[in-house]
Structures are given as C-alpha cells and as structure tokens.
Nucleic acid binder design. Structure first.
Lengths: 141, 141
DNA sequence: ATGGGTGCAAATGCTTTGCAAGTAC
DNA sequence: GTACTTGCAAAGCATTTGCACCCAT
C-alpha cells in the first residue's frame, strides 16, 4: 500500500509539478484531522505547527490534492466554504450533519449507491456520482 | 387550497411586513419558472416583464419566500450561487444534475426518505431533513 | 537554467448591508 | 405618522489571480 506522500509525489511528477516544502507541510497536516476540515482551519494549524504556507498556497494545494484523489471536497448547506476530508480515512463519502452542533459525521452505505443507480436509471441517466447529506438531531440516550 | 399569493400575504402579515409592488412582482415571476432558477435569472426576467426590483430587493424577498415555505433553496456542487424552486411545483425535493448540460431535474422518491430515516437511526440520530443530488450522464436512446 | 511556485494584495462572484429617501398600513 | 422598504453603492466572505521574485529539478 502506497503512502499518501508517495501518491501525491507521483501525481505531481505526472503533471510536471514540484514537491515543495509548503506542499509537504500541507500534506502532513491534513492527515492529522480526525474530521472534515475547512481551508481556514488548515491554515491555522499550519501556523501553529510553525510550518508556513500562505492562504493562496493552501488553496492551490488543496485543489491539487483533490485532483489527485487524496482529498474529497464537500459542500454543505448555506455555508459558503468547502470542507475537505482525507480520502484515506475511509470514513465514507456521505455525511450526517448534527443540526445543533454542526458536527459532520461521515458514513458509508452501499444502499445509497444502489439507490442512486436505480433512481438515475428511472430518469434516463446513468449514475456518475452523488452528494448525500442527512441533517439529523442527536437522540437523547 | 390557498394560492401562493394568499400564503405569502398572510406570512407577511404575521411578521408585520408589507406586501409591496416589488414583492408582488417577484412572487408572480417565480411561479413562471419551469425549473429551479438563480437569483440573477429572476432579476433578468423581472426587467423583461417591465416590473422592477433591484438586486438587493430580489435577494431580500427570496429570503422571505424561503422562510414562508413557498420556495425551496438549494445548493449544488462548487457553484457559489443558490438555486430556488417553487415549492408548489411538486416536482420533488431531490435532484439529478446532468453532468454535461448542467440541467437540474427535480424528482421525488419515498425510498430516499426511508433510507434517511434508517441511516440516521443507525448513527444515533433522528432524521430532520436531507440534501440529495445525483450527478448523472444522459443515456443515449 | 528555467519553468513552475510562492506571498502579497487586488480582483472575483454571489450575497448582504448601511444609508437616505420613499411608501404601505 | 411611522415602521418597514427600496435602490444604490459599499462591504463581506471564501476563493482565485496577477505579478515580481524564488527555488526544485
């Protein structure tokens, strides 16, 4: 199994792009998030870990990471910002958002893909991908 | 069955807001869209139908219409803008987006709500609502 | 050496807001 | 009469881009 670093480096080589210290720092940092994160959070964490990369570089690198398949990019509700999740986390590509705390819970369910296929078919389309977000309220125990 | 106009007027009264010519023009225009639309499209259509309302008023009124339940507000992929769909259209609250043309096809399926309930439950939540978008490619006939 | 990379600040694009003047109730 | 409204332009926000200098390869 290839490490994220190897995957990213080979992605960059393919595109004749460079593996700079900034890109390495960003790659290391995103692997530490235990949940989907925003660009701004990554920027903060970088500054705290005395690595450095400007806002512009963070956005440019996130774009490459998404293209390389290492990150999933997600959009929620009315929030204007993107969320990113490390693909290697295998937490799932669908999400439940806690209506009270805003917590994002990734999950995976084969039933969703199945349903997508059937529904797309019914409408005369083939299923390419989907976006699925459940807004839920935590059950009191 | 109450008309959209009656619903909006009574919503406004409840909130001690006013039923102005601009708000009436906007309400009339949104009922003519046969598909989800953007704020900018509404603005254009208003200008063509020689009604008038500024961009600011359009956004302010759309917000009230969503709050009143007459419009559904939706967000897709990376696009920064909101889409709105007249709730009375009964076209459904889930959507398929044609990956090539960008066409948005609303649909409704009880299987989706069922699945939401089951999945939320499985994660320890109760289902409040959901957002479901299928990205599809039109099948050649 | 050289083509891509970086930081900065300015530019975007959609949406919101402050303000002075207008109007529905 | 008096809140609420409107249009305009300016402000907001997340993200992107132009540019002059920098550095992996």
């Amino acid at each position: 199994m290839e490490s994220a670093q190897e995957i990213f480096q080979s992605f960059l080589r393919t595109k004749r792009l460079k593996y700079t210290p900034e890109r390495r720092a960003i790659l290391e940092n995103i692997q530490q998030f235990r949940r989907p994160f925003e660009a701004e959070e990554l920027l903060l964490q970088l500054r705290q870990s005395d690595h450095r990369a400007s806002k512009a570089t963070v956005y440019r690198t996130l774009k490459h990471l998404v293209e390389s398949g290492l990150l999933n990019q997600m959009f929620f509700g009315a929030g204007k910002q993107s969320y990113y999740d490390f693909a290697g986390s295998s937490r799932g590509h669908d999400h439940l958002v806690d209506i009270e705390s805003g917590l994002i819970v990734p999950f995976e369910s084969p039933e969703v893909s199945d349903l997508c296929g059937r529904l797309a078919d019914r409408l005369g389309y083939s299923n390419v991908s989907h976006r699925f977000v459940i807004i839920g309220r935590r059950k009191s125990p």
